[in-house]
Each structure stands twice: as structure tokens, then as C-alpha cells.
Amino acid sequence: MKKDGKLYFEIDGKPCYAEEGQSIIDAATENGVFIPSLCHMEGVKPAGSCRICNVKVDGRNMTACTTPVEDGMIVENDIPELTELRKAIVETLFVSGNHHCPTCEKSGNCELQALAYRFQMLVPRFPYKFPEKGVNPRSDQIYHDRNRCILCKRCIRTVTKDGKHVFAYHGRGGEDLHVAIDEELASRLTDEEALEAMENCPVGAILKKERGFEVPIGERKYDHQPIGSEIEN
């Protein structure tokens, strides 16, 4: 099946090629197929925590960000069963935090919101929890709004240029599991690093201070095109 040293596989019947060891999701992107994801970031060790990227591999549910392509694999992605599952996950994320898009600076650039639009979520089927989580404003460079954090660990898995971890998990295993900031380190972030932290966060949990609405509403990433359309061909 291999061709020019590349693995051959299919997504929804489309012939695709991958490097040895490449994850299904990264390979899909290269082949112009969009597999929805939230916790995944190219180039960063996968966490497999959000489960949005669920695909069917030879009939079994697998997370596309943690599963490497194998030669001859048959992957199902854009099928009603998976869309429904992914939509349900997005809904659970909406109800377990406080995602008030109208007041959020990330609106239009938020991946969670964009997925909700893509899946045509109108209202979550689960009851809202309205948790009381609080905002940590105590660093000069960023706000961390825990109400919006979806615990994707993207911030935790990325480091500053000199290899420092600004974000870490706290309260592991308990109800209070949350991302904590090293406030001192966060205060010393350069503007670029703080902006990068904001961009790495798929939602509006990490916001750069003093830079709100640099891109006006209406000119943002997902204002005119659904998420994934930049990949699909």
C-alpha cells in the first residue's frame, strides 16, 4: 500500500498519505481533511483529553490526536454519529463552565465557540452548572479566567522561549482541578509571549491585558468562515 515511502490510509473514502509515526489528525490536516479538535496543537505532545477528535478506525472509536496512522487504515470522520458525539462534548464544555460569548474578548477567535457554530449547537441539552470559579488577575501581563477554562492543558504543555512553565495543574484528582499561574513568571512575560499564551488557549481563559479588541469584531478568524474551512479542500 505504501507509496514513495509514505503510509497510505483513507478518511471517509478519500485516499491520504502520512509519514511514519504521524498522528491521524496531523496527517488529515496535511491531506486537506478537517478533524475537529480542541486540546490538540501541532508540534506539542498530544494530551488526548478533550475527545473531540474522536474518529472510527476500523470501526473502533479512537482519538485522532494520539493515534498514529498505520498503513492501510480505514478512518471514518465526517459521519453523523461522530458529529453528534462531538457536538455533545462541546455542549458539556459549555455547561460546565461559564461561556458568555457576548462579553468575551475571544469571541470570533474562540475555537470552542467556532465548533459550536460548526456543529450548529443552538442550546445545550444538559443543564448549566454555572460554577463559581473566579478570575486570577494578579499578573501584570495576563488575566486567567477560570470560568472559561476547558482544561485542555494547551497552556501547560507549552513553555516560554527559555523553557519555563507558566501554567500548571492544581488540585489534581479533586473537584477543584484547575490551571494555576506562576504569577511572577507571568508578570515577566514579554508582550509577544503573553500574546502567544492568549493564542494558544482555545477559549478566552487566558487574555493579554491592555490589548483587548486589537482585532475588531467582524474581522476575526471565524467571523466569516467556519472553523476547519482553512484546512478542507
Binding site: 457576548p102 483587548g212 479588541f213 486589537e214 475588531p216 469584531i217 467582524g218
Partner: peptide, 17 residues
């Protein structure tokens, strides 16, 4: 204002657009 009904452009000391 950025939106037709609920505007968003107001910033402390400025306007986003």
C-alpha cells in the same frame, strides 16, 4: 460599533475600530 445591536467597540480610553 462592531455589531448592529449590541456594540463592542468601546475600550478604556479608546475605540477598537
Amino acid at each position: 460599533g462592531g455589531r448592529g445591536i449590541h456594540p463592542v467597540a468601546g475600550l478604556p480610553g479608546g475605540w477598537s475600530k
